[in-house]
Design a binder for these strands. Structure first.
Lengths: 232, 232
DNA sequence: GTCAAGGCTTGATAATTATCAAGGAGCAAG
DNA sequence: CTTGCTCCTTGATAATTATCAAGCCTTGAC
């Protein structure tokens, strides 16, 4: 792979503490590749041949069963996906597709497992990462089971707003259709949920959302540190 | 702790491959205790002081926010809980309470983390366990987002039936109220969902359910290996 | 036995969410 | 500038799920 991308990857929490030699051998086995938008990278049910590291672009994790489909999560740079399947040498539980043109590093699963065996610091980092992923899904599930769709949208808007600097407006980082599926609702209902939030100072203009009364929105959303905060 | 329970715990996948000395020191720091039914063992938001190992009884994992409550999962012997929070030295994301009188081993978090640092085999087992937990929650989430409540019930009945020997009938292992919450529905709707399944050969008699037409039920449920099978 | 309590069910109704059909707005290609 | 496309929105309606209010049945205490 090209050496110019290595520092970026090395700085990922998953890789930063591993030994130089283990990191090098991982990188030597890896492929850096650019994929066009809307390309299905992995399909649920297939064996997890690679650990994916997204360095540029955006990837949607989704799942299907019985002709229905739902978005399970979005991956942003720099992020990894299907770590659990790689470690267990199992099939993928989720599919993944690029949202935009995306640059990805593909590390063969066998090499990841070998590095895990050899390098203790890497093993520790993997546990940290996995535990974080686990807690992420648990939060998602609490979000789904304990909140209505309007509340989920309100909290998601507050999070976007926060992440983007709390300037009073925010940009939706992907399609409304995708956002709807991520929030567990139909596109039609997302539209209506935005209307429901108008009295709370939410004004939609294409992919931009203005929040004119964050406090009122927060009173409706009732954000919960154990669901909405990334850190915990 | 009492030595009579050690073999049972040692045989857990999480502990079976760790070194004798690391296991011994973990066990010496641990407490084995029996708790009455309906006791809240841990509360979400509190620091994860112990790793819990259930050796007898049954524990419900649940979560609350904003006066609403939902069951996140059930733990059966021999099983562990809040491993992720222990490893991250973080607060619990879920609460736990005993369903029946239950026997639990409490291992102080610090000792678990120390053993993880010291014993490589334990570290590997932890990764395996964590990855399994992660994949479990992902499956739960797919179940929730891709199926209706009747389909969730149908699939859960099929799973109970399978687990209990596929004899044509099964026993619900906990309250219907709890089952309803686990499936993401109200008790009233669980009752109605059972009625909806009558034409598919589902007959309820208290906590016992007879399945007179498993094929027909399975055609409705459309079980999916990537959601319903434990192994994958 | 009677009684009370808890768990479950049922019915009536309401709220939430989905589906179907149509139409508008923005955008890229020609 | 027009055309066609995709994405989003809206309205009408239907399906699903929740809530509220009884009521029933079992269980255990007395």
């Amino acid at each position: 792979m090209r050496t110019s991308d290595i520092p970026e990857i090395r700085s990922l929490r998953l890789f930063e503490s591993m030994s130089e030699s283990a990191f090098d051998s991982l990188m030597q086995a890896a492929y850096l590749q650019t994929f066009p938008a809307q390309l299905e990278l992995i399909r649920e049910g297939d064996p997890a041949d690679f650990l994916y590291v997204l360095t540029d672009g955006c990837v949607e994790m989704f799942a299907r069963t019985n002709q229905r489909e739902t978005t399970m999560g979005m991956v942003h740079p720099v992020g990894t996906f299907i770590l659990a399947a790689v470690l267990k040498d199992a099939v993928n539980l989720m599919s993944a597709r690029t949202v935009q043109k995306s640059k990805l590093l593909l590390i063969p699963s066998a090499n990841v497992r070998a590095a895990f065996e050899r390098d203790e610091a890497f093993a520790r980092a993997i546990v940290e990462e996995l535990a974080g992923c686990y807690r992420g899904v648990v939060k998602d599930q609490k979000n789904l089971k304990l909140r209505s769709s309007v509340e989920r949208l309100a909290n998601r808007l507050l999070r976007f707003h926060q992440d983007q600097g709390a300037s009073g407006s925010l940009d939706l980082p992907y399609d409304k259709r995708t956002l709807a599926s991520l929030l567990g609702m139909t596109p039609e209902n997302l539209s209506r949920a935005f209307n429901t939030l108008k009295p709370y100072g939410v004004e939609v203009d294409g992919a931009t959302v203005h929040l004119s009364d964050v406090d009122s929105l927060a009173r409706l959303a009732k954000p919960d540190a154990l669901i909405d905060e990334l850190a915990t």
